[in-house]
């Protein structure tokens, strides 16, 4: 199943105004892995994610999804296998009703009407949003919008899911539902977030970015309990790893996922 691999080699990217957003980023993500990308604001997380589906093309270096290099000529194939959920669901949901929005991707894949219908039904069912199908997106709550945004991507049955800040702006229960939804997916997952506790729950591996470069890449439990590393990268220990704020007791071993 080599086509579920994401490989980034010496990736560099400069924005048009001259800001260097990525400096020599390299990593390789295997099939079925779930990887967190963390770092302070402006560390280059979103820029990196935009390279994985070819919305941005490398200034230098290379991005490969499976056996295919991400280039202008391969965008069609790349975008079929990489599904991106953007940070603001309002950007993702641009059709007048939820059903049409979820159907947008499958229709662009030239599926038959029956095929589109079954994809839409399946995707909305997966995120428990079938009842929202005929609603306009602007009438949905934040959590519903997020769920539907994920469905719009699932309906294209991607091999790889890329999520930018999926838990931003959600209330605690909606966030918990999202985490259990995502942890049920078998896809290769790449999740950029400041929500380190979610990364701790969701990803076995984490890539820490700082000023456009990868400063650490390894098991989540080890990296996210490394106070010095996190402090240097503009982050702090996730709550699940910190001592209890009331009694000062250290977290039980069960809070940290065993690798």
């Amino acid at each position: 199943m080599s086509h579920h691999i994401v490989e980034v080699k010496n990736l560099e990217y400069c924005y048009a105004d001259g800001t260097t957003a990525l400096r020599g980023v390299s990593f390789r993500i295997e099939h079925g892995e779930s990887v967190g990308v963390v770092g302070e604001n402006g560390a280059g997380k979103s820029t990196l994610l935009l390279h994985l589906n070819g919305c941005l093309l490398a200034t230098k270096g290379e991005v490969r999804v499976g056996d295919i290099p991400v280039m202008r000529e391969t965008l069609r194939q790349i975008r079929r296998s990489v599904g991106t959920v953007f940070q603001d669901p309002n950007d993702q949901l641009f059709m007048p009703t939820v059903g049409e929005d979820v159907a947008f991707g499958p229709l662009n894949m030239h599926l038959s009407p029956d095929g589109v219908e079954s994809r839409v039904h399946g995707a909305l069912d997966t995120v428990n949003a079938l009842h929202l199908r005929s609603r306009p997106p602007h009438r949905l709550s934040g959590g519903e919008k997020r769920a539907v945004a994920i469905a719009t991507v699932l309906s294209m049955s991607p091999d790889i899911l890329v999520l930018d800040e999926p838990s931003a702006g959600l209330d605690p229960q909606a966030r918990r539902r999202l985490i259990s939804l995502l942890s049920g997916f078998k896809h290769t997952k790449i999740v950029a977030s400041h929500d380190l506790d979610m990364i701790l729950d969701l990803c076995r591996r984490t890539i820490v970015m700082h000023q456009g470069a990868v400063v650490a890449d390894g098991p989540t439990a080890a990296l996210l309990s490394d106070r010095n590393l996190l402090a240097k990268s503009g982050l702090e220990l996730p709550l699940g790893v910190q001592n209890c704020p009331v009694c000062g007791a250290s977290p039980s071993a069960s809070a940290i996922p065993q690798i």
Partner: peptide, 21 residues
Amino acid sequence: RGVRVHTAMLARGFDGKFRPL
């Protein structure tokens, strides 16, 4: 917003043709 929405459309295979149900 327009730029971001366009990006989101491209990411879902938009090729300039609009296909209503």
